[in-house]
Design a binder for these strands. Structure first.
Lengths: 252, 252
DNA sequence: TTACACGTTGACGCTGCGTAAAGGTCAAAC
DNA sequence: GTTTGACCTTTACGCAGCGTCAACGTGTAA
């Protein structure tokens, strides 16, 4: 039984292009080439192709498959085990991803529902207004409308529970920061705890977190008078202290 | 605060190439280009990049991200839900894949264990020897060493349980085939059951199954005198009958 | 002989960048 | 004033695994 590309392709359920490609990369060479230059495959090639497709379905790269098939002493069990581990990692990643997407959808839908019900609109509006009053116009000019709007949007999507959590976190942060400041050591345990709390607090506002951005924000707390005053309210120098603590924190 | 490519890249943890690419595809354009042609990004762009990276981490394609970001009315919840479904499908596929790889590893290891312990070596060697005696050299010449070797390899990996199952299946096949032959109808229920049993039996030897290959083998049973004699042993014409039954069976 | 289905090689396209190559710009050091 | 070195620019190939033309030869049935 001999097959041309199309015949073999139909038999195995792959395209002729695939067969030509496998020929090209030396994965599956035809038994012979006839006088017209046609690729002719025999039974051996059918079997080999079956093996190839089997491994391919397992998700192995064609190069790995070639290694396995070309070297009869190749440790196919080990290859499969390696591959298995890769798949498990992939699965873990995927599960994380799915959880994140679900969280995002939920957040989105809560946002919509809440907007519809205008449920906590009162306190949120108040919060936004306060925000505006505090840092309002100048910040808006300095950092762009988008940033402020996005931040406000995120506030709107927040549930009462999340708001409680946020407030609690902020309180804990200020308390810890105050205590830490008294120690005078930005690298100390207390200061590092404050930095961590600040990160947590920040993550309520930021959709994604990076050490660099965190550090950048900390510097801004010092550079921008309004933020500085906010932090230095009780103990002058706290803004700098927080910046230094965050600098240490983000260096690990 | 203005950023050049590298500054922004460091801030966000992406390469300069990525930023240039995002510019190229219109996903993130710099705020302005300075007199030397440098890309200059502002705060708005930092925020936009954060959003982009957020969606990217969720595994969305850059084009989708662009759609979401460029059109403020874009239904991002729907986009996320579509994406979510895709991920679930992917997960299902992956789980299937993992199960298959595990099965393969198990099969392989059983084979190795058995080879190490030389446990059922006796009956397997005998089986292979019989195979060789029966169809040996000529088949090997006709269909290539590989096919025969692979078949033998597969026999070696078989467990005692599997061998039992195989024998039982073969007995059932011959019995059913005998009964079916008496009806004289290759399209009848009995003949079709025989064809199905033959497929099952075949799948012990073949790593993958295709209707065409099955049909091809059935034809070979008729063409090759050795196979023909084997099937016609009790009732002459059985090989043809089986071929016809399989032909009908594989037409559905 | 004319169609028409089949075969061939060659080459570009897709994603999301990595990685040169070949060259301009800018600040600091000599 | 110039040289160094770290920036920046555009252009373009490379990756995996084929899909999809294009341009052209073959085989066979009408």
């Amino acid at each position: 039984m001999e097959y041309t590309v199309q015949k073999l392709g139909q038999l195995a359920g792959v395209s002729t292009r695939t067969l030509r490609y496998y020929d090209e990369i030396g994965l599956l060479k035809p038994a012979r080439i006839n006088s017209s230059g046609y690729r002719i495959y025999g039974q051996q090639e059918v079997n080999r192709l079956q093996q190839i497709l089997f491994y391919r379905e397992l998700g192995l790269h064609l190069e790995k498959i070639r290694d396995i098939m070309n070297d009869p002493d190749f440790d196919s069990t080990k290859a499969l085990k390696d591959h298995h581990e890769n798949l498990l990692n992939k699965k873990e990643q995927l599960d994380l991803l799915i959880a994140n997407v679900e969280k995002s959808i939920a957040a989105n839908e809560r946002g919509i529902t809440m907007t519809d019900q205008e449920k906590f609109e009162g306190f949120k509006e108040k919060l936004i207004e306060e925000n505006e009053k505090l840092y309002g116009k100048e910040i808006r000019e300095k950092y762009g409308q988008d940033a402020v709007n996005r931040s406000n949007d995120k506030l709107k999507r927040m549930t009462a529970h999340e708001h409680e959590e946020l407030t609690r976190l902020a309180d804990e942060l200020y308390e810890t920061l105050g205590e830490a400041f008294k120690t005078g050591d930005p690298a100390g345990d207390l200061a590092q705890k404050a930095a961590e709390l600040h990160k947590k607090w920040l993550c309520f506002y930021w959709d994604s977190y990076s050490k660099e951005a965190h550090r950048g924000l900390a510097q801004m707390y010092v550079d921008d008078e309004r933020f500085k005053q906010h932090y230095d309210k009780n103990q002058p120098g706290t803004a700098e202290f927080l910046r230094d603590a965050i600098h240490v924190y983000t260096s690990n």
